[in-house]
Simulated assay, not measured.
Amino acid sequence: MPWSDPNQSNNPWGNRPNQQQPDLDEVVKRLQEKFSKIFGGGNSGSGGSGIGKGAIIGGLVAMLLLWFASGLYVVAADEEAVVLRFGQHIATKGPGLNWHLPYPVETVEKVPVTRVQRLEIGFRTVSDGQNRKIPQEALMLTRDENIVEISFTVQYKIKSASNYLFHIAHQTTTVRDAAESAIREVIGRTMIDDVLTTKKAEVEVEVETLIQSILDGYESGILVTTVKLQDVQPPDRVIKEFKDVASAREDRERAKNEAQAYANDVIPKARGEAKKTVLDAEAYEKEVIDRATGEATGFESVLAAYRLAPDVTRKRLYLDTMQEVLSKTDKVIVDKSVAERVLPYLPLDRMAGKVEVK
Rank of each mutant, 00 (worst) to 15 (best):
D5S: 10
P6M: 10
W13E: 13
G14D: 14
R16T: 02
P17Q: 13
Q20I: 12
E26Y: 13
V28K: 08
V28Q: 12
G40E: 00
G41E: 13
G59M: 09
L64R: 05
G71W: 00
V82Q: 09
G87A: 04
T92A: 03
N98H: 13
Y103T: 03
E106P: 02
E109V: 05
I121P: 03
T125V: 15
R132D: 00
K133A: 10
P135V: 10
P135S: 07
E137Y: 04
L139K: 06
L139A: 01
M140G: 02
T142D: 06
E149M: 04
A161R: 02
N163E: 00
H167G: 00
A169I: 05
D177V: 02
A182K: 06
A182T: 02
I183D: 01
T190H: 08
D193F: 12
T198S: 09
E206L: 15
V207D: 05
L210M: 08
Y218I: 02
Y218W: 15
D231M: 12
P235Q: 01
P235F: 00
D244R: 10
D244L: 15
K256P: 08
E258V: 05
D265I: 02
P268D: 03
A270G: 01
G272W: 05
A274C: 03
E282N: 07
E282T: 07
K286H: 11
R291S: 07
R291N: 13
T293F: 01
E295F: 06
A296E: 10
L303M: 11
A304G: 07
Y306D: 03
R307G: 09
P310E: 08
V312L: 10
T313P: 02
R314A: 12
R316E: 12
R316Q: 14
L326Q: 07
S337Q: 11
S337C: 02
A339W: 02
R341D: 09
P344H: 09
P347T: 08
L348T: 06
D349I: 07
V355L: 12
